[in-house]
Design a protein around this nucleic acid. Structure first.
Lengths: 141, 141
DNA sequence: TAAGATTGATGGTTCAATCTTC
DNA sequence: GAAGATTGAACCATCAATCTTA
């Protein structure tokens, strides 16, 4: 049970820390993840439903994130002609540029340097992945 | 970086799962933690500021949680005579009873049985604790 | 009927500002 | 002035209900 509360605390600490790093770019971690996902899709465009599946979040969260990214000019909404129920989120040039800068700021920080070695980080990742599976998370990074 | 996103996912999965277990008792994990903390204090009463420090959350979160716990009749607010700036949250008999039932429901679940051994869980806890320290969390459970 | 997206509601967190009391 | 608690605002997450389209 103490493991559970520890995960909650660490998540909170990491989130506020990362959000602080992303704030100068007008981003939060949630929106940053969307940009990263779009940049991985080499077309730079993805249906909102796909974004929700990959990030394991509710459709409402995707709509909210895209709303704000669109307001900031980092993403545009485009109808999908093959299936007109779908809406595509398209990464703009400005979105790609700010993503590059934001990634630089995030990766410049070393969150684990003080406490963990590379081997420990790897072991930690594998245990967390095991937890995700046992909680019913089918998506593996 | 994948460790960070994994922590976020696991936290989300665990939270929705635990919240689901606590819902029949009219509780959430945040409010459950407050009740647990109060029950540990053998007087069953704690200043709101102390609750915030122990749980590492903002004063606003404590006010919010106590508001709802008080509405449910699980806690009462009492002024502190020694320092009248402070407000004491007092665990009621009903609060103690629902806490007992809720704890039974939570501990009946084994979140890690599928994926982790006891040794792994212990190693996981120690690594998470290391992360907390390197993030500036001085409170150790 | 079902899938994709949106809106409105609720609960959680934080911050900024305020009010009372030390 | 500083500490403790509260209020109002902002953001992120969920669910329930709705609307359009397959």
């Amino acid at each position: 049970m103490r493991v559970v509360t520890s995960i909650m605390r660490v998540q909170q600490l990491l989130l506020t820390r990362i959000d602080g790093l992303l704030k100068p770019f007008g981003l939060t971690f949630a929106r940053y993840e969307v940009l990263v996902l779009l940049s991985f899709s080499r077309v730079g465009a993805l249906p909102l439903s796909t974004i929700g599946e990959r990030l394991q979040v509710h459709p409402t969260s995707v709509t909210n994130a895209i709303d704000r990214l669109e307001s900031a000019g980092l993403v545009t909404r485009t109808p999908d002609d093959t299936d007109r129920r779908r809406t595509l989120a398209v990464l703009t040039d400005q979105g790609r540029a700010t993503l590059a800068k934001a990634t630089g700021a995030v990766t410049a920080q070393q969150f684990f340097l003080d406490g963990l070695t590379d081997d420990d980080a790897d072991a930690l990742y594998r245990m967390l992945r095991g937890l995700r599976f046992s909680c019913g998370d089918l998506a593996a990074d």
